[in-house]
Design a protein around this nucleic acid. Structure first.
Lengths: 225, 225
DNA sequence: CTAATATCTGACACTATGTCAGATTTGAAA
DNA sequence: TTTCAAATCTGACATAGTGTCAGATATTAG
């Protein structure tokens, strides 16, 4: 336990750095990290409480002290990923200034995060089909982008930056292209190269929203470091 | 058995109309139809050999006379759906004439098929994450569109109809937007309205490939009946 | 009608889940 | 350092699903 190697997905759970760290905090982190490690090299369908706890040295029953079931555990992990992803998305969603530049910057961070955590992102998506409650969580995660994206498009339409059309189904589709392109491209190793994917997605969004003339291959170079 | 009501998904399996119809042919069809019926109103995760065979009146063991497991059965059903979908897609993929008109016509049929069979399409996608072999089949189904779509784009680029860019990742993303927008929009009832989804997808494809000036709301009216 | 064949079934071995009473470990107060 | 109540962990059980097989039953060609 003392010399755990860095987790390849870069996502790690550490017990709250503030306040007293109980045994339970440490055990919980051990389980979550074992899950991340497992998911990095196995599909979600092979993750059982059995296989997971075997890799921790604890008994299977101990798992249920911490999580109601595997999907409740995935929910915890989804929240971690969601925070990181929202941060990148918000650059465009809530930024001010040239929207095309903001979009390019968003996609830069989004692509990096999704590439970094590809297999884990995929595991979350896979998990969403096998449990009713978690399906709802995943749906809410996706639809959060629909709502904020819709607001952004309508604001840009009001300013005359985007043509007038029925925004809801368009942002719905644009969000799905991102989610599932990332999942399919980065969800299993060997992952596809991130740059061409990023450029393709940026091309699609920019062409659809602002017009093809704003698609610039070198756009990402204009962004601060 | 004699007065089976029409299946709501419109997809039905009937024993080969040509040649002798054995008991096995009929039983096989009974099982497949029970699966379609089940899937129309339940998520794939609730489809077990248990629940399926209970609804046929046959024993659970009988299932294994016809299919290796649930995913092999889904494979059979996927092939039926794939045929119908390829037919619509080929209008654009292999048609000659105004590509924007062809694309609109493709999307008309594609949207109709996916709306019609929405819950079933979703079941197939869900099933793809829970079995290694079936995951491969679903992947091949999707990537077939990548290959033929790629050829089509490159042909249009050669004619100067589409700007020059790295085609592979763009068609990859465009195919995912269709697949997963249809699945999310039509996969669970109440399904979203098909028309706005069709128009949104057409807008995205046309803007990305041919330019926003070709996006025409009334385009689908130009198509023969 | 009959017998050979096709189809179907009950019962078994296996794997996984979630729960609980009781065993063990932890760590704060003495 | 010792103590002991609370925190944590475990083995064993009940339940549910899978895939297989020997043998029972139904079908159909002759």
């Amino acid at each position: 336990m003392s010399d755990l190697k860095r987790h390849p997905s870069q996502l790690r759970v550490v017990p709250e750095p503030t306040g007293k760290v109980t045994k339970a905090d440490r055990t919980r982190a051990v389980i979550l990290n074992a899950a991340l490690e497992f998911i990095w090299s196995h599909p979600f369908r092979e993750l059982s409480v059995n296989s997971l706890m075997a890799s921790t040295g604890l008994s299977r029953a101990a798992f249920y002290q911490y999580f109601e079931d595997i999907h409740k555990m995935m929910e915890t992990l989804l929240h971690m990923l969601a925070e990181e992803i929202f941060a990148s998305a918000n650059i465009w969603l809530e930024g001010v200034g040239d929207p095309v530049a903001l979009l390019n910057e968003s996609f830069q961070g989004l692509t990096q995060s999704c590439y970094q955590h590809g297999p884990f992102l995929r595991a979350v998506a896979d998990a969403s089909t096998t449990d009713e409650r978690f399906e709802k969580s995943w749906g809410q995660f996706l639809s959060a982008f629909d709502d904020t994206g819709n607001a952004r498009i309508q604001a840009d339409q009001a300013q005359g930056l985007i043509a007038t059309f029925d925004t809801r189904p368009v942002i719905f589709a644009l969000n799905r292209v991102n989610a599932y392109t990332f999942i399919d491209a980065f969800g299993q190793r060997p992952r596809k190269q991130p740059k061409p994917i990023q450029e393709a997605l940026a091309r699609i969004w920019i062409s659809t929203l602002y017009g093809a003339q704003y698609v610039e291959k070198g756009a990402s170079n204009l962004i601060r470091k």
